[in-house]
Simulated assay, not measured.
Amino acid sequence: MTAPGRFITFEGIDGSGKSTQARRLHAALVADGQRAILTREPGGSPGAEEIRALVLQGDPDRWSAETELLLFTAARRDHLERLIAPALEAGETVICDRYVDSTRMYQGLSRGDLRARVDALHSLMIGREADLTVLIDMDPGVALGRAKARATAEERFEDFGLDLQRKMRAGFLGLAREFESRFRVIDGNRPEDEVAADVWAAVKPALMAAT
């Protein structure tokens, strides 16, 4: 019987470098001969990718926080059913760029006091936390400049501005204290290679415990 895989998520404010570090960790695991999948939220499955376009594009006020919460939860459920759960059951390491902690912040904190609803929906419809969450912590002003420099169509949340970035950084650090056994906080205000080395040092014990 195959041992279940490990579920590792990356979190952080927009432009923090979390996506880059998620890709680097995945590449390192594959190069080491390990079975690993890199995915993202919102998205990661065909249905969830369709919802991604709805929530990340358009005017900042396109959706209410309550509607966003339902859309993100629907995308996450499809992602869980079609990719995350089957891969974990097959013994693969799943690395996910954002997961429910982003919803706890962006919908549960930033646009209303909806944290209790986020947690209730997560418990009812998802029921799966990450085994380990890597939080890339970065100065909000620098991160927002990076995010805006990408100039993509998916800038709806970046368009809320620096105040949101600051609020989200404080919120993510609060989550790291709340779930201290699951979170590892990495200083992202350094060269990419240094950050990657610290990510590997944080993740390696969790991977070795699974073998």
Rank of each mutant, 00 (worst) to 15 (best):
D137N: 04
E68S: 07
D131S: 08
F172Y: 15
L144F: 04
L80N: 05
L29P: 06
L207H: 10
S64E: 01
D187Q: 12
A143R: 00
G108I: 10
I136G: 00
E68I: 09
P140C: 06
G174M: 09
A27T: 11
G33A: 03
F7V: 05
L83I: 14
H122M: 01
R62C: 04
G58L: 06
R77G: 02
G188S: 10
M138Q: 13
A28Y: 02
R128E: 15
C96R: 03
G127P: 11
L132E: 03
C96L: 05
E11C: 09
A28H: 12
L80T: 04
P140M: 03
M138I: 15
D14R: 06
A197W: 02
R156D: 00
I186C: 11
V118L: 09
R76K: 12
A116V: 06
L71F: 10
I13K: 03
G91T: 09
Y99P: 12
D119F: 05
D119V: 07
V195E: 07
E89Y: 00
H79E: 02
D193W: 01
A31F: 01
L88I: 09
S64W: 05
I84A: 03
R150F: 08
D119Q: 10
G127V: 05
F157I: 08
A65S: 13
S110W: 05
E89T: 14
L54R: 10
F179A: 14
S181H: 14
L114E: 08
E11Y: 10
P86D: 10
G141Q: 14
G188T: 07
A85D: 13
G47Y: 08
A22M: 05
T152Y: 02
M1S: 15
S102T: 13
D61L: 12
G145W: 00
K18C: 03
G161H: 06
E129Q: 14
G43E: 00
K148N: 12
I51F: 02
E11H: 06
R82P: 04
R128Q: 15
V199S: 07
